[in-house]
Design a protein around this nucleic acid. Structure first.
Lengths: 169, 169
DNA sequence: GTATTATATCATATTCGCATGAGAAACTCA
DNA sequence: TGAGTTTCTCATGCGAATATGATATAATAC
């Protein structure tokens, strides 16, 4: 489904999101909880911090915490740096035999499937994932981004220094 | 979406399925058409033959043809030897934190997504993929298999020696 | 300001999917 | 039977993803 890096990243963020907001999780804690090699996870957490998903603080009582409201954080934002979601342009028969202007017989069916997949990652937020079992349809669209915005930087959260208000829960 | 091997395999089978039934396609032809390295594709075609998806004949005018009615051939059957479809048992939070008896908060949502994906491959047949654009719902369930049956061997087709009757078209 | 804790970064090892090449085996046709 | 065609099989190369280890850098607490 996802490659290992994306999988680790997603699970790490969900873990961090479940903790109290202002208590950072150390990479050590996350790594041992998820049973992922320490240094390897460190690198993943690092890129998550660079893409503005997590905030990192060094030193004692340091660690990682969410950089934004989990209700505004689609899974795609977490996953994209590690795992390319399928592109709309080419379908199964790819190379020349199929493009949007001159689609092959299989194009529509294949694209319906990949679209479903892509939209799951784009529409599902961290908050949704933690909101219990799937019988409420909290999967409202939060943001539509066509391509990964790589240079997001630590986008300053809505209300001051890393303290957003949790909406639901 | 799929790894390259599964992708090549799928496209190769679709290509073969589009040809006349009794004229085998040589690996050379398929490879050049799909723009895939000859020997690499050969190995893929070989395992497709071993899993009973294709029939291979050697010698002049030899090559590969479908081993069964395309309407009875779900994409999963083609893809499984090369690409593991997601398993139902473990979800996102995997390792111990989540199992079917004691699911995590994210379990249902994640599983709904993976189920959708898995069912696409299990319910969509080669015939469906070639039946034109996706507005008819020809995706009726053909077979339900929970785990890959690796030792299928060349399951003798329904009506004698490799000559099935094509249903639609 | 020094010791401690933790992230950041670099260099390197390992594993696996992808790919290549050469030769063996099987089949057809003349 | 022998030449030609095609799949089959084995051995090997290559590169990216995964993983490890050591050191540098930053923040806190005393």
């Amino acid at each position: 489904m996802l490659n290992q890096s994306a999988d680790h990243a997603l699970r790490a963020v969900l873990f961090v999101a479940r903790q109290a907001e202002d208590v950072p999780c150390s990479a050590d804690l996350i790594a041992s909880t998820l049973d992922v090699p320490r240094n390897y996870l460190g690198k993943l957490l690092n890129t998550l911090a660079q893409t503005g998903v997590l905030l990192s603080t060094r030193g004692p009582r340091g660690g990682f915490r969410l950089a934004m409201d989990p209700a505004s954080l689609p899974l795609a934002r977490i996953v994209e740096p590690f795992h390319r979601l399928p592109e709309r342009r080419t379908c199964l028969l790819g190379n020349g035999a199929c493009d949007p202007d001159n689609p092959c017989e299989s194009h529509d069916r294949w694209q319906a499937m990949t679209d479903h997949l892509t939209q799951f990652f784009e529409r599902t937020t961290v908050a949704t994932m933690l909101s219990g079992h799937g019988d409420d349809d909290g999967t409202t669209v939060i943001m539509h981004r066509t391509r990964p915005a790589r240079d997001v930087g630590a986008t300053s959260p809505t209300s001051g220094q890393g303290s957003y208000r949790r909406t639901g829960t």
